[in-house]
């Protein structure tokens, strides 16, 4: 994770990028855009060495592709009729394929989001809305794993002294809840002791909004505007029903390639800078 340059950027940039990427993938439904989005999301996940769950994605894709023509009978090119008398159309099959890929691309982008926007970034963004709520969120993130761990511990030890399976479970729950209450008293004391009740709290963060963040944000907004322009003017457009109409513009495609490969480009740029950026000192190792 340390080496990803996009990760090191300001959380606002990160979240802006993902909002734009996901929004555009959903809106366009254009085969080329979906293909680009899908490819770069996959590559970016692979670059960050995230498990892709290929099997579950395949199952999902097949489901969408199969189900859509069965329930959607619009379109003019009828291929054949089902036993119920409903037509299966070429348009609805194609729509199913692209919609399936679109859904998977979105899920992949969400996976990227999970990798890049970690809990502390989220807490930082949230603290801009409400400091107390973001603190509470941080406390929850701490408390839930603690609670689950304690429940397991109680369960394991109760198994040693009690034979009755039901009793083991109820005892474990009882103990965990009373322990949690006990724990909460100390936590609240600790909160008070460190001035939780004082007014004017601030929120600590270690993020600096540097020039490269500004540039990056600008680029994202710019590309977003360009693609919006294409979308609104139906220059990068597809209509599935009743018959397929497709408009493609090279500039639009280029803009979308640029947008979806942005995290990659950032990494590539800094990789080149690091390798060939005039580093005169060669390390001994």
């Amino acid at each position: 994770m340390q080496k990803d340059e996009f990760y090191k950027m300001h959380p606002v940039v990160n979240i802006a990028y993902f909002i734009v990427a996901i929004l555009l993938t959903i809106c366009f439904l254009h085969p080329v855009i979906i293909f680009i989005s899908f490819v770069f999301a996959t590559l970016y996940l692979m670059y960050n060495k995230v498990n892709l769950h290929i099997v579950s994605f395949l199952i999902m894709l097949i489901c969408v592709i199969l189900i859509n023509p069965l329930v959607n009978h619009q379109g003019v090119t009828t291929l054949f009729y089902m036993f119920s008398g409903n037509p299966i159309t070429l348009e609805s099959i194609l729509y199913g394929v692209f919609a399936g890929f679109m859904i998977i691309s979105v899920i992949l982008w969400f996976n990227c989001y999970m990798v890049i926007v970690t809990s502390d970034k989220f807490i930082y963004l949230f603290s801009k809305i409400s400091k107390k709520l973001s603190l509470m969120f941080s406390m929850i993130l701490r408390f839930v794993p603690l609670l689950v761990g304690r429940l397991k511990e109680c369960y394991n030890y109760q198994k040693l002294v009690t034979k009755n399976k039901l009793k083991v479970v109820t005892n474990a729950f009882y103990m965990t809840s009373s322990w949690a209450l006990e724990n909460a008293i100390i936590t609240s004391k600790s909160l008070k002791a460190r001035g939780y009740e004082l007014k004017h709290r601030s929120s600590f963060n270690m993020y600096k909004f540097s020039t490269r963040d500004k540039v990056m944000l600008l680029v994202i907004i710019l590309l977003f505007c360009v693609l919006c322009f294409f979308y609104v003017n139906e220059m990068l457009y597809i209509r599935y029903f009743p018959s397929i109409v497709i408009n493609t513009q090279v500039i639009g495609i280029l803009a979308s390639v640029l947008l979806f490969s942005l995290p990659f480009l950032v990494n590539l740029y800094y990789f080149l800078m690091y390798k060939f950026g005039g580093n005169k000192w060669s390390s001994i190792r």
Partner: peptide, 16 residues
Amino acid sequence: VTDKVYHELAFGLESL
């Protein structure tokens, strides 16, 4: 109180 070490360290000063 919080989930990260640095946040825990900063907590008191945040309150102030």
